[in-house]
């Protein structure tokens, strides 16, 4: 039972993380290869404040806000770059953030990490059991889903998709591509921060090693597998991939296998992605719009 609750919580957190990336990758066409940085900022800011006895509400808001501001600061230079160069810039940024966490020992304890992050408490409600924490993360996931759903189905979301499809054509219709990309990037970063906060207070111990490129790849995989530019895609993708990833961990495999488990998992992920790209390149969930050919 605990295992199921544990899985559900991780799926909920990764749904938020993937929804936040999808508004960038799926809707705006921004291939962000450093998304984990904003997850890390949320996790560390909230953890550090909580360890200084700040209330959870304050730590939560600070974590989200710092991730959003981080998005703004990196977006200002990076969003001026085109396609691949933007990807490289975000990748570099994520490495810089990880290095800072690793080396700013005075603040972050460096590679030792931060143990003992308290479970949240909001208005004297304690979220210190698994069911309670599941409730909290589900609430946050539903809220994220609704906000991102509302945004992407609105005229604002329509502009994002137009910029994804053809930035120049959007510009000559009067939409400022830089401003919209910035908004999408800051929103995506802030929600990644939310996911990070929830992660830190769930796991209760974080260290720089948790926030590597592997995490970014996992969340990208969730978005692509689930279906870029769809509302349910990231949720379905998170459920499928997290279930797969975590269940492998709980298989009763002989100890001598444990060494190859990590690489094996990576290989299966890779294989999954290749199979998917061949048979269903648009992901499990499809974008809305008819495909039937009906020409003049």
């Amino acid at each position: 039972m605990d295992l199921v609750l544990h899985l559900a919580i991780v799926v909920a957190i990764y749904s938020i993380f993937a929804l936040s990336l999808n508004i960038e990758v799926g809707y705006t066409g921004l291939f962000n290869f450093g998304h984990v940085a904003f997850f890390a900022i949320g996790a560390y800011v909230s953890a550090l404040l909580s360890l200084q006895d700040a209330t959870f509400s304050l730590a939560l808001i600070a974590g989200i806000a710092c991730a959003g501001v981080g998005g703004l600061l990196i977006g200002l230079p990076a969003l001026k770059l085109q396609g691949d160069y933007f990807g490289i810039a975000t990748l570099g940024f994520a490495e810089i953030v990880r290095m800072l966490l690793q080396n700013q020992v005075a603040w972050t304890k460096g590679p030792m990490g931060l143990p003992g992050i308290p479970r949240p408490e909001i208005f004297s409600w304690h979220f210190d059991t698994l069911p309670a924490y599941l409730l909290l993360t589900l609430g946050a996931a539903v809220l994220t889903f609704l906000v991102i759903g509302f945004l992407t189905l609105s005229p604002f979301g329509r502009v994002l998709k137009a910029i994804r499809d053809d930035e120049t054509a959007a510009a000559v219709l009067g939409k400022n591509p830089f401003a919209y990309k910035m908004e999408a990037f800051v929103i995506g970063s802030a929600f990644a921060g939310l996911a990070g906060v929830l992660w830190a207070h769930f796991i209760t111990f974080i260290s720089p090693g948790d926030f590597t490129l592997t995490e970014t790849i996992l969340v990208l995989l969730i978005v692509v597998l689930g279906g870029k530019g769809t509302l349910w895609g990231p949720v379905v993708g998170a459920a499928v991939l997290i279930f797969f990833q975590e269940s492998v961990r709980f298989l009763r495999l002989p100890p001598e296998w444990s060494g190859i488990l990590g690489p094996l998992q990576q290989m299966i992920f890779g294989l999954l992605l290749v199979i998917l790209m061949i048979f269903r390149p648009e992901g499990l969930i499809r974008e809305k719009g008819k495909e039937t050919i009906d020409r003049d």
Partner: peptide, 16 residues
């Protein structure tokens, strides 16, 4: 021509 290929015809119009 440069329509937005992954927007519906209606959304292309509503964007303008």
């Amino acid at each position: 021509s440069r329509v937005f290929p992954r927007l519906t015809v209606m959304d292309n119009m509503l964007l303008a």
